[in-house]
């Protein structure tokens, strides 16, 4: 059985990952659709911005976020001065770090899902009198739904494992920002903590497996759905 400290870390991880993946979803759908269907000047810039965190060390991403959102950063100081909001070293910061690191994976899956939708079906909808918005909501979105859920799951799973950016931006505060990876790290640093680390590693493996199997299943069935 898990100890109270471990349970808190699991609960916190699930809560951060769930919030991060839900917060990222609307932007992920918008970005994925934009990249899949639209041609516009500066598309490559958007593409690069979305994908950079994928190749950047998460610690570097966290550092950049800290520079931006920290108490003395341009955005951080603005939020503190005008709204009294302190982002760095809070649970919200853990969510932001998770979003930054997992967003490219989500966009990638969603973009592929939209690309798999036959654009002529959207044409057919327009011909039947549906405007762009209705076509998107009733044809593109439902046909891409499995890929979108798969992207959301990937984002969720990646958020569960996020460490580098989180420790820099959100710190390692027990009960506040200490998610599963941070808890494992902390436990390995103290004498007699290896047993707890093991338990959390098993939980992490289980959660990752569930998410990946579900994501893989959705990816496969999407192909059947669109092909029919």
């Amino acid at each position: 059985m898990l100890t109270a400290e471990e349970l808190t870390a699991v609960r916190l991880s699930l809560s951060v990952a769930l919030t991060a993946s839900l917060v990222a979803l609307p932007a992920g759908i918008a970005c994925g659709y934009l990249l899949a269907r639209w041609r516009f000047a500066g598309k490559w810039i958007l593409e690069a911005l979305v994908n950079v965190p994928l190749v950047l060390p998460p610690v570097a991403t966290g550092y950049l976020l800290l520079v931006l959102l920290g108490a003395r950063g341009p955005i951080g100081s603005l939020l503190w001065d005008h709204f009294g909001i302190r982002l760095a070293f809070s649970r919200e910061a853990a969510v932001i770090a998770a979003v930054a690191v997992s967003f490219p994976l989500m966009v990638r899956a969603i973009r592929l899902a939209f690309q798999a939708v036959d654009p002529r079906l959207e044409m057919a909808a327009r011909g039947l009198g549906a405007g762009r918005t209705r076509t998107f909501l009733t044809v593109s979105l439902p046909l891409a739904r499995r890929g979108i859920i798969a992207g959301w799951l990937l984002c969720f799973a990646r958020s569960l494992g996020e460490f580098g950016a989180t420790i820099l931006l959100a710190g390692n505060i027990a009960g506040e920002t200490r998610t599963i990876p941070l808890a494992i790290y902390s436990m390995t640093q103290r004498p007699g903590g290896l047993e707890g680390s093991w338990r959390l590693v098993v939980v992490a493996i289980l959660l990752a497996c569930i998410a990946m199997v579900a994501s893989g299943y959705l990816e496969r069935s999407r192909a059947d759905d669109v092909a029919s």
């Binding site: 036959d118 002529r120 079906l121 044409m123 057919a124 909808a125 327009r126 011909g127 039947l128 009198g129 549906a130 405007g131 009733t138 044809v139 439902p142 046909l143 759905d225 669109v226 029919s228």
Partner: peptide, 29 residues
């Protein structure tokens, strides 16, 4: 734009919406 033209088109490969029933395809417009 096509949605304002009032022109019905039947495509070579039908292009029915695969996620909708026949009834919903028919009543799409």
């Amino acid at each position: 734009p096509p949605e304002k033209r009032r022109i019905g088109m039947v495509f070579q490969d039908h292009l029915l919406f695969p996620h909708l029933t026949v009834r919903k395809n028919l009543s799409y417009s």
